[in-house]
Nucleic acid binder design. Sequence first.
DNA 1: CCACATTTGTCCGTATGTATC
DNA 2: AGATACATACGGACAAATGTG
Lengths: 79, 79
Amino acid sequence: MPSTADYVKIADQIVADIQSGKVQPGDKLPSLAEMAEIYGVSTSTIQMVNVRLLALRVIRRHQGKGIYATDPKTWMREP
Amino acid sequence: MPSTADYVKIADQIVADIQSGKVQPGDKLPSLAEMAEIYGVSTSTIQMVNVRLLALRVIRRHQGKGIYATDPKTWMREP
DNA sequence: CCACATTTGTCCGTATGTATC
DNA sequence: AGATACATACGGACAAATGTG
């Protein structure tokens, strides 16, 4: 049984939080350091989460400001 | 002008190579070490490329074997 | 305008694990 | 058993953007 990687699990969790409305589009997510603390991983792992979520357009990053949730309507989806 | 990151440029180039037919679905891509050599970056950067391309389903990775191109018809796309 | 702290952005090197050949 | 190759995670270094004082 191939267990899912931490960075995929964390990314999926964030996706679920936005889809459920727990996190609203435009909301600022915790900082890199805070997320590393929350999920018990390094900031490097959180960066992989961000690369994944950015490719899917689930988040937008603004250097020096923060990371923000987008509208699920704009997400990438299967063909 | 925001300069694009290396890992995004490399990922986009691989996407273009598949879309143009230069790389066919099912083709094996160069190994991590070879790609790092080809593009003049570290294997860590190539891993970021893979995280991005995997999220978009442009590649499939098979541990111990290699990395393979998928059919563009199965890629993620905008809504 | 300048100095500083905070935060994200990118890249690198390394260690360890797992799958394949 | 050994070599090769991908998979994941970590820590560090430096840059760039922002906000505050």
